[in-house]
């Protein structure tokens, strides 16, 4: 009688297979889309080469080489673009076209969908780290190996904070507006202590920028990869942002457009 015990009833694939399938799907969607490849890989690459080689842009490197100073910042910028800009835009359109709702009715479910999106973001980020890190090394970047665990911690915390911000935007704002918002935030914040230290900013802004999730990610990565140290302040700031933005996304995210 009970339908749950009917022999041969359709079964879901395992959680791991579902999430991996969704992650692959999301990653391929980014890497096959010209604009997304531009924002997540090419633009950071141009920034990296430009800032490293264009000596007409004078930088206060405080005794380090230009490439050592610039590479962690460009990595932070790239990680933001993949954790925030690209999922915010794609999720906003998925929400509008009912993709989130349809996938939520498959065995993937809403939880698996979010997990798959996270896996997709991390997969794109691995590509970014390989491409940008490789280009940096080729240009003479010599990161402090002792700082790698701290750098990975900053990467993951920054991704949590920016990923939650992406869901918050995608879950509340109209898709076209998300395109504008996500790109604007990226560009504004890129120069607010991400690519370059906040200390290059004018007076008051310097102190604010360091506490934003963008500036904190940049400072934490620079501390890790330049000096091999754990930057307590920025890392704590990232934890706080990740917690606050996740709570906000959980509270306000909407699955449907209507």
């Amino acid at each position: 009688m009970s339908e749950t015990t009917v022999p041969g009833a359709p079964r879901a694939a395992s959680v791991a297979r579902r999430v991996a399938a969704q992650g692959t799907f999301e990653m391929r969607a980014v890497l096959r889309n010209g604009e997304q490849v531009m924002v997540t890989v090419l633009l950071p690459l141009i920034l990296l080469v430009g800032l490293a080689r264009a000596t007409f842009v004078s930088l206060d490197t405080s005794g380090t080489t230009r490439i050592d100073l610039v590479t962690p910042g460009v990595l932070a910028f790239a990680l933001m673009s993949s954790a925030f800009t690209s999922p915010a835009i794609s999720t906003a359109f998925d929400r509008r076209y009912g993709v989130l709702r349809l996938l939520a009715t498959t065995p993937l479910g809403p939880g698996g969908l979010l997990a798959g999106k996270l896996v997709g973001v991390l997969a794109v980020q691995v590509v970014q780290v390989v491409v940008l890190g490789g280009a940096g090394l080729w240009l003479g970047w010599r990161p402090d190996a002792a700082g790698i665990p701290a750098a990975i911690a900053a990467w993951l915390l920054g991704t949590a904070a920016w990923g939650a911000a992406a869901l918050l935007a995608a879950g509340r704002v109209r898709a076209e507006a998300v395109i504008a918002l996500a790109n604007l935030v990226l560009v504004l914040l890129a120069f607010g202590g991400v690519v370059l230290p906040a200390s290059v900013l004018p007076g008051g802004l310097e102190h604010v920028a360091g506490w934003l999730p963008s500036g904190a990610l940049g400072e934490a990565l620079r501390a890790a990869l330049l000096h091999g140290t754990w930057a307590a302040g920025p890392l704590v700031a990232l934890v706080a942002w990740a917690a606050a933005l996740s709570a906000a996304a959980a509270r306000w995210f909407r699955w449907s457009a209507a």
Partner: peptide, 14 residues
């Protein structure tokens, strides 16, 4: 979810 198939009115296709 594994037992029920759904076709939404607005498609839901990426």
């Amino acid at each position: 979810r594994p037992l029920v198939g759904v076709m939404l009115q607005d498609g839901g296709l990426p």
